[in-house]
């Protein structure tokens, strides 16, 4: 069975590279991007199964990236990392988000969420 491929997007580079390393320990192939533009380039070049993205980023915001990804890859599951639980600091929530992940994120909870959404998608496709 192919390994799950995940892209983590946050302008805090140390955060996403460390999370990626920890996901690798859990048999998930994880890549990271520190800007919206880098994320879009990587999504267009690689077959990811799941994207995990922060909303607040310099330049192209997470919301803009989510809208673009959803337009180009409507079936690609997206999780939103948020700094303060469910508060988005007044930002509009882009549609198509599977779930919110308040920081600090527990890695095993993240793995469960990733596996859960992919399992559900496989089941839906079979039906």
């Amino acid at each position: 069975m192919d390994k799950i491929r995940v892209l983590l997007v946050d302008d805090e580079g140390e955060l996403v590279t460390t999370m990626a390393e920890r996901l690798e320990y859990r048999d998930i192939v994880a890549d990271s991007a520190i800007s919206g533009v880098e994320a879009l380039n990587k999504v267009r070049a690689n077959p990811y199964d799941v994207i995990i993205i922060d909303l607040k980023m310099p330049g192209m915001s997470g919301a803009e990236v989510i809208r673009t990804i959803k337009k180009e890859y409507p079936d690609l599951p997206l999780f939103l990392m948020t700094g303060h639980g469910f508060s988005l600091d007044g930002e509009e929530i882009p549609p198509g988000i599977v779930d919110y992940l308040p920081k600090p994120i527990k890695i095993d909870v993240l793995v469960e969420k990733i596996q859960g959404v992919l399992k559900k998608r496989t089941k839906d496709h079979k039906i």
Binding site: E14, L15, R22, Y25, G83, D89, K103, P104
Partner: peptide
């Protein structure tokens, strides 16, 4: 305050993940 707390939360998140990575290495 919102901006500062957001940034501090990022700092704590990085320390949390880095501590978690240490735990992963010890487990390994």
């Amino acid at each position: 305050t919102a901006s500062v707390s957001h940034e501090l939360n990022n700092v704590i998140s990085i320390i949390d993940q880095t501590g978690g990575l240490l735990d992963d290495l010890l487990y390994s």
